[in-house]
Write a protein that binds this DNA or RNA. Structure first.
Length: 463
RNA sequence: UCCUCAGUAGCUCAGUUGGUUAGAGCAUCUGACUGUUAAUCAGAGGGUCGUAGGUUCGAGUCCUACCUGAGGAGCCA
């Protein structure tokens, strides 16, 4: 395996004259009479290492196996490059071919592939410039997320992937069962007898670790979850996945204002970290994917997020001199067209909308004194839409019981959640960030399926 | 799930009001070239025009259904 100091990114840092071995996959090879140029990449850095092979140095039959997509090791000396385009290059003395790649059938060419085509060869697309950059950036952002929370004393909690509670009713859930679907055990009234199932009750893949996260916040104070999350909605859009990664911090002794400011600091921190550490990849995105990426990140890092209430938002939308496809009035949920107008045209920066009508938000959000709105917040970004949804949670036992009952939810299913309000309850708040939407924002990638290694969407679970 | 658009060579696309033998660039193969970097130059091979029906003397082109993909909407992160 490659040891620290042996990656191509390390080779670029070495002094001219160093004898090195570079390993990686061949992007392209160009032959002239008496000389060959190989672009070699091991994924550690955006820039390829140019390998130069003079005629007769390496056997002809070996060089014939060095084709686009093949995997090789090259031993040689790092030299100053006489040509423009790179400062240094590797003067190869010997080449070992680990795995060849038949040029007639290797599907990943050096130019002209669409994102849709690359998605069909998801097992090979990490070798492309674009996807190498996407996944290095995804890694950097993930690392920044851990770093941000740990610098603030947050504990990372591993909430379960399998759950038996239909948590917050946040969308359709995937069932988890070991029952024989061709021969289901039946109850007397011809329903399915879930007591015979693996967990003795109906189980699902989690749609959120929040409720479990709250239990840990009321013991370890500041916590966060970071892991996969599942939604069985039949959503076919560039912004939805059936399996995606979510970050959910939960803080005791915290109200919605603290929550909102943490969300803003959080987003700015991630941006600052990737700008600091992955500028090479960001420049590629800016040049080839979306030429507003750098400007936008700069702008967000240096501007305060706008904060308005839902009620104020409705007033702005009502005053807007335009026809809405979905009519605006107090009480309706904000539509994509409304969110875009607010972030892209009115404020032209991230906007936090708070205090939504209680009817359109989840049961656990804290009731305001007006009796009509709850302490909810959505962070809206230009182009992306909602990237963070959060709230201050209802910490008053009697209010929460009343809320659960009024929404027709089964009180007994929430017995442990309610006990948190009976024993040592405290004001607390949190939010959820969709990792992939953040990566879309950072990279300028237009489709969420292109910022996760192997996207799961309705009708697609290949690889 | 609904609406709209698209599907032609390995990839990216052109193909006129329906009319002879299906077009280009890239990729691949062969050859040329001593510093290329989207290398260049010359030549060659490569097609069930998404699938199944239908209309017509004749369909890549028109009609129907289905499949696949994309964009928009809803749901949301």
């Amino acid at each position: 395996m490659l040891q620290p100091g042996e990656y191509i990114k390390d080779i670029f840092q070495m002094p001219v004259g160093t004898s090195v071995t570079a390993r990686g996959w061949v992007k392209t090879k160009r032959d002239s009479k008496g000389i060959s140029f190989i672009q070699l990449n091991d994924g550690s850095v955006f820039t390829d290492l140019q390998v130069v092979i003079d005629a007769d140095v390496v056997p002809e039959e070996t060089m014939q196996l060095v084709t686009t997509g093949s995997c090789i090791s090259v031993e040689g000396d790092l030299v100053e490059s006489p040509a423009k385009g790179q400062a240094v290059e590797l003067k190869g003395k010997s080449v070992e071919v680990h795995g060849s790649a038949d040029p007639a059938t290797y599907p990943l060419q050096k130019k002209g592939a669409s994102m849709e085509f690359l998605r069909e060869i998801a097992h090979l697309r990490p070798r492309s410039n674009t996807f190498g950059a996407v996944f290095r950036l995804r890694h950097a952002a993930s690392y920044a997320i851990h770093k941000f929370f740990q610098e603030r004393g947050f504990i990372w909690v591993h909430t379960p992937v399998i759950t038996a509670s239909d948590a917050e009713g946040a969308g359709a859930m995937f069932g988890v069962t070991t029952l024989d679907l061709m021969n289901l055990p039946r109850t007397e009234d011809r329903g399915i007898d879930w007591t015979k199932d693996f967990f003795g009750k109906q189980a699902y893949l989690t749609v959120s670790g929040q409720l479990e996260g709250e239990t840990f916040a009321e013991a370890l104070s500041n916590i966060y979850t970071f892991g996969p999350t599942f939604r069985a909605e039949n959503s076919n859009t560039p912004r939805h996945l059936a399996e995606f990664w979510m970050v959910e911090p939960e803080m005791a002794f915290c109200d919605l204002d603290d929550d909102r400011h943490l969300a803003e600091d959080f987003l700015k921190y991630i941006i600052a970290y990737v700008v600091d550490t992955r500028m090479d990849d960001l420049e590629f995105f800016n040049n080839r994917i979306d030429n507003t990426v750098l400007e936008t990140l700069e702008h967000v890092a240096n501007s305060d997020f706008e904060h308005i209430t839902y009620t104020e938002t409705i007033e702005i939308l009502e005053k807007a001199n335009r026809g809405w496809e979905f009519p605006v009035k107090w009480g309706v949920d904000l539509q994509s067209e409304h969110e875009r107008y607010i972030t892209e045209e009115v404020f032209k920066k991230p906007v936090v909308v708070t205090d939504y009508p209680k009817e359109i938000k989840a049961f656990y959000m804290r009731m305001n004194d007006d009796g009509k709105t709850v302490r909810a917040m959505d962070v809206l970004l230009p182009r992306i839409g909602e990237i963070i949804g959060g709230s201050q949670r209802e910490e008053r036992h009697d209010v929460l019981v009343e809320k659960i009952e009024s929404m027709g939810l089964p009180l007994e299913a929430y017995w442990w959640y309610l006990e948190l309000r009976k024993y040592g309850s405290v004001p607390h708040a949190g939010f959820g960030l969709g990792l992939e939407r953040m990566i879309m924002y950072l990279t300028g990638m237009k489709n969420i399926r292109d910022v996760i290694p192997f996207p799961r969407t309705p009708g697609n679970a290949e690889f």
